[in-house]
């Protein structure tokens, strides 16, 4: 059996009449990136706040890093690191002082703390800015410092709540690189994001959260296959063949200029095989073929729309 970094059953949370989480189940395998994807207000941050001991759930059982969340919150705290949506750095202190503060709070020895701080400043490209107050940092630098602070105690499970919201594309890619490095080192990442591309790029497993309920779960590919909208694009060498194929497949859309034909399809192996067999039987040669599965945007919009 694989070890679970997080196992949650029937997680509930309401604020007054407003139900934020309506009984969700989560299973996050150790050493993977798990993405919780959803629109604003779906309950992503609330989920992170519960799993990271910030707020108590109204119902449900949760085990985080092998510890029961309700019974042993301090053991959970000892095992996790959290980088929230809003930068959790002390803006009045310098980057280095922020890291040393974390080292002190993680009860590292002075020498160990200095070594760790120096290593993280180097790794997150903050050496030059180390002596400057964090208030002078750019958004991307603050986010890097924030994550560096989270890493001081070498947590095995890291929560990243919308880690790239508000970052420019370069900083976002930089953040992705760092996340991949962390997972390569065996860390488990619980990521929330409203960017589909981010989940697509990073996550081993994605769950879609909308209105406090999980509406879909799977790998990015599995999710994409769940909805229609994909097609197979056939390219021909000769307009004649294109016309023949078009008459054979009335639902397809032809582009005579590019000599291509778009055939609606779910992109599955079976339907591709059938299509090719049919073309073969009619002696229609194709030059090339490509399969277009819907991207996560399509999935996201279709599934959250259906949930309204």
């Amino acid at each position: 059996m694989t070890n679970l970094a997080i196992a949650a059953n029937g997680l509930r949370k309401s604020y007054g009449d407003k139900v934020v989480l309506d009984g969700i189940d989560l299973a996050v395998t150790e050493g993977t990136i798990f993405a919780l994807l959803g629109p604003n207000g779906a309950g992503k941050t609330t989920t992170v706040q519960i799993l990271s001991t910030l707020i108590a759930p109204d119902g449900g059982t949760v085990t985080v890093a092998g510890h029961d969340l309700a019974a042993r919150p301090d053991d959970v705290r000892g095992a996790i690191g959290v980088t929230g949506q809003y930068s959790a750095v002390d803006k009045l202190l310098t980057g280095e002082e922020n890291l040393l503060l974390m080292a002190d709070l993680k009860h590292l020895s002075r020498a160990e703390g200095r070594r760790k701080a120096a290593e993280l400043l180097e790794r997150f490209d903050l050496v030059e800015a180390a002596g400057k107050p964090a208030s002078t940092y750019s958004g991307g630098m603050q986010r890097r410092l924030d994550l560096a602070m989270t890493l001081v105690g070498d947590p095995r499970l890291i929560f990243l709540d919308e880690p790239t919201t508000g970052l420019d594309p370069r900083s976002r890619r930089e953040m992705w690189r760092i996340v991949r490095e962390l997972v390569a080192g065996g860390v488990t990442i619980f990521l929330t994001t409203q960017y589909l591309e981010e989940a697509d790029q990073l996550a081993d497993r994605i769950v879609l959260l909308d209105h406090g309920r999980l509406i879909a779960e799977g790998t990015a590919e599995e999710l994409k296959r769940r909805i229609p909208g994909g097609h197979i694009e056939l390219t021909f060498t000769d307009p004649h063949l294109l016309d023949e194929a078009k008459s054979l497949l009335p639902a397809a859309v032809a582009d005579p200029e590019a000599l291509t034909l778009q055939v609606p399809s779910d992109g599955g192996v079976k339907s591709i095989r059938e299509l090719l067999a049919r073309l073969d039987q009619n002696d229609i040669d194709i030059d090339s073929m490509s399969v277009h599965t819907p991207d996560l945007d399509d999935v996201f919009l279709t599934l959250t729309e259906a949930n309204r």
Partner: peptide, 9 residues
């Protein structure tokens, strides 16, 4: 500023 949330976790 979120640093308190960090301390709490």
């Amino acid at each position: 500023e979120g640093i308190i949330a960090r301390f709490r976790t």
